[in-house]
């Protein structure tokens, strides 16, 4: 068994990976038993992976080892605090879970002050940018600042205009009646649409890259197992055609396949 696994593990990984990938993609046609099977398999594996990682990366080195092997007996209290969360399952002791949840909500709130200062304060001075073009400048302490071209200056002005307009959109503490504030908030709203468009476009491309990666795996990594990349490519084309045909037939019959 051990020798067989050691010799064939790479081939087995390819076959398992290909079966799992194709099984999951069967959802593109409709909800089906194969997809459900792989969905539950994924759920079990992901949960097992997560729990194993929590034990091996956190609990074992930071709690079990010091508690049991180094004699840090007081770490037992850490477990007891953690176990307080499980009172959520008891209607009688439920409020004790809220006690510990409240404590950690407080901890998170307390950290928010530091997080705000560390994350946002450094961004405030860097938002003030030079807007007048100039040549290279030598400061009194001998440092040479690079030249600021017209296009850089224009970009800096644009940077500050966008920043102020979008920020003005977030003034919710009072009604935006003043015409200047009203206009800048409106402009901020439009500018945010550009941002959301850019984020949306990047997200689509990221997801498509993942899909291309799976296709690359099936064609170039797994393909040689069944006669070559071209064979797998033709198989995929055939499967895509089959899905389209079955979807069309289902649509003609007025069935809702739940397909994307």
């Amino acid at each position: 068994m051990s020798e067989f696994l050691e010799t064939h593990k790479d081939t087995l990984v390819l076959w398992i990976g290909a079966i799992c990938t194709l099984g999951f993609y069967s959802i593109l046609y409709r909800e089906n038993r194969i997809y459900r099977f792989f969905e539950h398999l994924f759920l079990g594996l992901a949960m097992g992976y997560g729990v194993a990682n929590v034990w091996t990366d956190t609990l074992q080195p930071k709690w079990w080892e010091p508690l049991v092997h180094r004699g840090h007996w007081w770490l037992i209290f850490v477990m007891i605090i953690g176990l307080f969360y499980y009172f959520v399952y008891s209607p009688r002791y439920n409020w004790l879970a809220r006690l510990v949840i409240g404590f950690f909500l407080g901890v998170t709130s307390g950290r928010a002050f530091q997080a705000f200062v560390n994350d946002y304060w450094p961004q405030i001075p860097t938002s003030f940018k030079p807007v007048i073009p100039h040549g290279p400048v030598t400061t009194p302490d001998g440092q040479t600042l690079p030249a600021l071209t017209w296009s850089d200056a224009l970009n800096n002005i644009l940077f500050m205009v966008i920043l102020l307009c979008v920020m003005s959109y977030f003034f919710f503490s009072f009604e935006q009646k003043h015409p200047v504030l009203k206009r800048s908030a409106q402009l901020g709203r439009w500018l945010m649409m550009f941002t959301f468009g850019a984020i949306f476009g990047s997200t689509i491309m990221g997801r498509l890259a993942l899909m291309i990666d799976r296709m690359d795996f099936l064609v170039n990594d797994f393909g040689p197992q069944i006669g070559g990349p071209w064979v797998m490519f033709l198989v995929l084309i055939g499967l895509a055609g089959l899905v389209l045909y079955l979807s069309k037939r289902a649509a003609e019959r007025g069935e809702d396949t739940g397909a994307i």
Binding site: L12, V13, G17, L41, R207, M211
Partner: peptide, 23 residues
Amino acid sequence: YLLQEGAYQALDATMFSIIAFYI
């Protein structure tokens, strides 16, 4: 290795790539 590299990683990548179709 089989569970992690073969099944889990393939299912994980495929699950997120399916989102491409939804998106």
